[in-house]
Nucleic acid binder design. Structure first.
Lengths: 103, 103
DNA sequence: CCAATACATAAGTACATACTTATATGATTC
DNA sequence: GAATCATATAAGTATGTACTTATGTATTGG
């Protein structure tokens, strides 16, 4: 199940940090490493896991590979969440506000 | 970070199955085991992980411990998701519909 | 082409984790 | 209060996973 892969991908603090960093703006693998105390192969492996989970996308640009957030993964999390609407607390403020804005 | 614990908890297929089962209705640990090919200690340990992640709540009822979905965990996932609204695809239909109904 | 750069893959290792069996705790019934 | 039932915890083990170093592949510039 793809959702399991998504949750597994986000369960690792390092990968979660990479995801957050990409959310602040697309960048290549080298740029991602800046200030992260992580080896090049480790970064590459983490990005592969995030890719398989559809949380990020790659786009080759010459020698560089640019990474960006993949909306598919987020959409899958949203769908997962929607399945449990019966259990949502009365106010999920942040989310509600955001979705009102979407219209 | 609590979100990491939530994702970690849901990353395991067995725990995810337990969560889904509880979403269909609260029940005690023995009932949860029905049709799941899982030992009693394993179930107990999984429930402990789900509890720590705020995905389920326990309520002792005599000899039994009744488990139910904890809305807190879901709310935290919702808040996490809301942080990345910039990357949501134009239509997260399911979620949108659900939240419209909430009003 | 050849060297350099950016990234991916391979293979090995240390630690995390999901399981097991055994035992403890907590609650009910006789 | 002894036996029993429901669940939790302890301790050990096998597998998974996040890292390492070494090497491979793709792209560019000289």
């Amino acid at each position: 199940m793809i959702e399991t892969e998504i949750f597994r991908a986000l369960a690792d603090p390092t990968r979660h940090a990479i995801f957050r960093k990409l959310a602040a703006g697309a960048m290549n693998a080298s740029a991602l490493r800046q200030g992260m105390a992580i080896s090049q192969p480790a970064m590459s492996q983490h990005l592969a896991v995030l890719r398989r989970a559809r949380l990020v996308r790659e786009e080759r640009q010459g020698r560089f590979v640019n990474y960006r957030i993949d909306p598919d993964g987020l959409a899958l999390v949203a769908r997962w969440l929607a399945k449990y609407r019966d259990y949502w607390p009365a106010r999920i403020d942040a989310l509600k506000t955001v979705l009102e804005d979407m219209d």
